[in-house]
């Protein structure tokens, strides 16, 4: 009897809510309409003729991520940091990583080989994210897979062989964050020192703010000013963050 009433209430709630939302969408343009602000980013992100609004990144999404709306992404990274802190705060006390031997030389060296391959692809996805799909978060996820694959296929005890434990992962993560925060603060420090206008997380020089990171680093295939170094910082942060999460959660699982 009670269940029956609850489901009637549920159906009523869902029908009401979805019809209200559908009503709100009645006047919206149909699928396939790109708003002018999106076209503005597309037009300007890698516009060689008029560089006053460009981000020097052929990938418009990457340009948005760390240039046009970089301050959003900076704090999105910090939200991810809170997620890691959640797992670390609740499960850190239980983490005791013990070295387990017993793997043959073949297993060890092949694991190392695969590890190197995965890490290389993580770096590639991060660095070339200005020209191809990808980015710091994506690269970091792949980097974490290198470690998680080792945890899953060999054992957690193999990680000390790779010179990694929770403490070191935390330190590496903080190094990544320090890189991101440093690149954010440099324009502000420049502004304080020189007295000219510069804004936090400013990437390229603008007509109204002269500060800028170098766009081309000698060889033409790399561009985007701060985008590549800051993406590397995010990659380390995310990769290490995922590794910490999986390590702590799996350790907890076993000891209970």
């Amino acid at each position: 009897m009670k269940d029956w009433r609850a489901s009637i209430l549920g159906v009523f709630f869902i029908v009401l809510m979805s019809s209200i939302l559908t009503y709100a969408f009645l006047g919206y343009p149909g699928i396939g309409f790109v708003r002018p602000l999106g076209e503005f980013y597309l037009f300007n992100t890698y516009n060689f003729e008029n560089q006053s609004w460009w981000s020097a990144s052929p990938n418009a999404v990457t340009g948005l991520l760390w240039d046009y709306r970089g301050y959003d992404t900076l704090y999105e990274t910090m939200v991810f940091y809170v997620g890691i802190a959640a797992v670390a705060m609740f499960f850190e006390g239980h983490a005791k990583l013990r070295k387990t031997g017993g793997m043959t030389v073949i297993v060890r060296s092949s694991a190392r080989l695969i590890f190197v391959f995965i890490i290389t692809s993580a770096f590639a996805i991060t660095i070339f994210s200005i020209k191809t799909p990808g980015g710091g978060f994506q690269g970091g996820s792949i980097m974490a897979i290198a470690y998680i694959a080792i945890i899953v296929s060999l054992s957690r005890g193999f990680l000390p062989e790779m010179d990694l434990d929770v403490e070191k992962a935390h330190l590496a993560k903080i190094a990544g964050l320090a890189l991101i925060a440093g690149l954010t603060i440099v324009p502000v420090v420049y502004s304080l020192a020189s007295g000219s206008a510069a804004y936090a997380l400013q990437n390229l020089p603008k007509a109204w703010a002269p500060f800028g990171y170098p766009t081309f680093l000698g060889f033409a295939s790399l561009s985007g000013g701060l985008i590549i170094p800051i993406q590397l910082g995010e990659m380390i942060h995310v990769g290490m963050g995922f590794t910490i999460m999986f390590l702590l959660l799996t350790l907890k699982d076993k000891e209970d």
């Binding site: 602000l37 503005f40 980013y41 609004w53 240039d67 046009y68 709306r69 970089g70 301050y71 959003d72 510069a198 804004y199 936090a200 997380l201 400013q202 990437n203 603008k206 109204w208 703010a209 500060f211």
Partner: peptide, 13 residues
């Protein structure tokens, strides 16, 4: 108004 990243609204924050 402080333009984050140097971009005026609505391009930036």
């Amino acid at each position: 108004v402080y333009y984050m990243g140097g971009w005026p609204p609505p391009v930036g924050i």
